[in-house]
């Protein structure tokens, strides 16, 4: 089993926080999120992203507004709520801790 497969569950779990992080920078719509993720190890598809976004919205971490697009139907632009920002801050802190632990352990 390669590293790639071993980490598939972890990647899946992290996706939520990466999405929050992408949205925290600016108002984005789904194609933007997919594009930013596509060049990383976390490349994903609409089929995964839409259910995830709807759950995050239900948990009150993000919200969206409809905006007209220059061509085609209006799009949903997502942004973080205060609760979402708080959660992202906590996660990043925790992630820093984990990173530290990973580096520290096993060193003498």
């Amino acid at each position: 089993m390669g590293v790639n497969e071993k980490f598939s569950a972890i990647r899946k779990g992290l996706l939520e926080f990466l999405v929050l992080q992408i949205i925290s920078a600016e108002k984005v719509y789904v194609a933007d999120i997919l594009k930013q993720l596509s060049v990383t190890e976390f490349a994903t598809q609409e089929g995964t992203l839409y259910p995830l976004l709807s759950r995050l919205r239900r948990e009150g971490l993000l919200d969206y507004e409809w905006k007209e697009s220059e061509a085609g139907p209006p799009r949903k632009y997502y942004e973080l709520t205060a609760k979402g920002r708080e959660q992202l801050r906590e996660t990043l802190e925790y992630w820093g801790q984990i990173n530290g632990t990973v580096k520290k352990l096993g060193q003498k």
Binding site: Q45, G47, T48, P51, S54
Partner: peptide, 12 residues
Amino acid sequence: AQMGPIEAEPGE
């Protein structure tokens, strides 16, 4: 194929 399969969220 580009859309990908719908992933049900955990617990739902």
